[in-house]
Design a protein around this nucleic acid. Structure first.
Lengths: 132, 132
DNA sequence: GGATTATACTTGTATTATGCAAGTACTCTA
DNA sequence: TAGAGTACTTGCATAATACAAGTATAATCC
């Protein structure tokens, strides 16, 4: 399949054609939770994304309106657009599922518990920090 | 990267290594919203998954404890385990994002609005229907 | 302002995953 | 137990990814 052709108008299918790979949301995570903004910062993440894949994903996310890029070359930095900020609930849902079902998770139980019981508040706090 | 080796213990990474492709969650969707249970039913979905990919994803999901398989050959049918049922909030979050940001979405506004305003109730209803 | 250096990528190649067409195997029904 | 429907497997072409290496851009130093 070529990644660009739309398979259906199902909203889940739409989301998966944009986000359905193993790297895109990790970049979002780095921005939301680690405050990262630059290519090199993303590259340093534990999971070890390849340089060409990172460049490709950043390009797709900018084109897709999830990220905005400001500056060029050494000054380039990335931030979330409103469309990107709307991914916070998606990321939290995946974090909650992963933490619940991975017996070796590194996620602190207290954080997961807070996401579980005060989800909307957590979303609001993260948004405000990134917007302001 | 080989799909099986763990990149980190981040819960998001865990989730993405299991769910981070464009097909897995569509099968979950078919079970949750369309009540599908068999290979052929999954195969008929609008997006057009290939037979070998479907077989591979079903196998992975069974191995990963998301689906259980009952019967063999012509009697085989699949259903969600508790771990699979826990994916309902993930699917709903992705649906909400997709419906919000796809200008050509087929999702009825009323359904999306209900997910947005009564999320926990929707999750509970879907769970009960699938468990009972 | 030209050399230096850090950062942000691109390119090439091997490996792995996917898409498509065709074939095989299991099992229910009659 | 023969036939047909369902559930897959196999083979091959194309696309995506991983890894190593190289190039380009922009700030810094002299």
């Amino acid at each position: 399949m070529k990644r660009q052709d739309r398979r259906s108008r199902c909203p889940l299918n739409f989301s998966l054609q944009v986000l359905g790979d193993t790297w895109t949301l990790l970049v979002i995570r780095d921005i939301v939770f680690a405050g990262k903004r630059t290519y090199t910062e993303f590259l340093k993440s534990e999971e070890g994304i390849s340089t060409n894949i990172l460049a490709d994903r950043l390009r797709r996310m900018v084109t897709g309106g999830i990220l905005r890029k400001e500056g060029r070359g050494r000054t380039a930095h990335y931030s979330l657009t409103p469309k990107g900020l709307d991914l916070i609930p998606v990321v939290l849902a995946l974090i909650e599922w992963g933490a619940t079902h991975d017996p070796e998770t590194a996620a602190p139980a207290s954080v997961i518990e807070r996401i579980r019981t005060h989800r909307d508040e957590v979303v609001r706090e993260l948004r405000e920090r990134l917007e302001g």
